[in-house]
């Protein structure tokens, strides 16, 4: 039992790290700069998936730890992503039973709200720190994230079933 548990944990963290790699992978040279605004928050999406699927194993603490690493990775203020991930992890962990019942596109719309909150909290902290001005463009990653959710969901579910985590 114990081995299976640690094995599962390794798989979960590997997917989170893959999300982090996707978060910093450079855009190809020929792509327009504006494409950068569409980059969704992969780590948040992976975390939400695992919280819905395995709420007893992945929770607010995992989200917080991942958030701290993302903060160091992106050079933002330490605690910024941690706070927003903790918030969305809380919502996802409270609603996971309902979310499981939803169709994947309904989940995507909830994801849009969650990722929107994620961006808003990030923006809120940066604006308190005096770093940015608001524009509606900040919600673009949430939108692209919601559209990509079905694929993230299917891939991670395939992976989870492949390694037999329930």
């Amino acid at each position: 039992m114990g081995d299976e548990k640690t094995g599962g944990l390794v798989v979960i963290w590997i997917t989170i790290v893959v999300g982090m790699v996707l978060a910093v992978v450079p855009m190809p040279q020929f792509a327009p700069v504006e494409l950068g605004f569409l980059r969704p928050d992969w780590v948040a999406m992976v975390l939400v998936y695992w919280i819905i699927a395995l709420p007893h194993r992945v929770g607010i603490l995992t989200a917080w730890l991942a958030g701290i690493v993302v903060d160091v990775l992106l050079g933002s203020l330490i605690g910024q992503h941690a706070l927003s991930y903790v918030l969305i992890a809380y919502v996802a962990a409270s609603l996971y039973q309902r979310l499981r019942m939803f169709s994947v596109w309904q989940q995507a719309s909830i994801l849009f709200a969650l990722l929107g909150v994620n961006e808003l909290v990030g923006f809120w902290i940066e604006s308190i720190a005096g770093l940015k001005n608001w524009s509606l463009w900040y919600l673009l990653p949430a939108l692209s994230g919601a559209f990509l959710w079905p694929w993230v969901f299917l891939i991670l579910r395939f992976l989870r079933r492949g390694v037999g985590m329930t």
């Binding site: 007893h56 929770g59 917080w64 203020l77 605690g79 903790v86 962990a93 039973q97």
Partner: peptide, 29 residues
């Protein structure tokens, strides 16, 4: 498996880690 997550644990985690993050943001800034 427990059918429900314990709501109070979630609340405490949110409160604790959320506040900790805010303190970190403040200290780092």
């Amino acid at each position: 498996k427990a059918l429900f997550l314990e709501e109070t644990t979630l609340d405490y985690q949110l409160l604790g880690l959320g506040l900790l993050s805010l303190v970190f943001v403040f200290v780092d800034h």
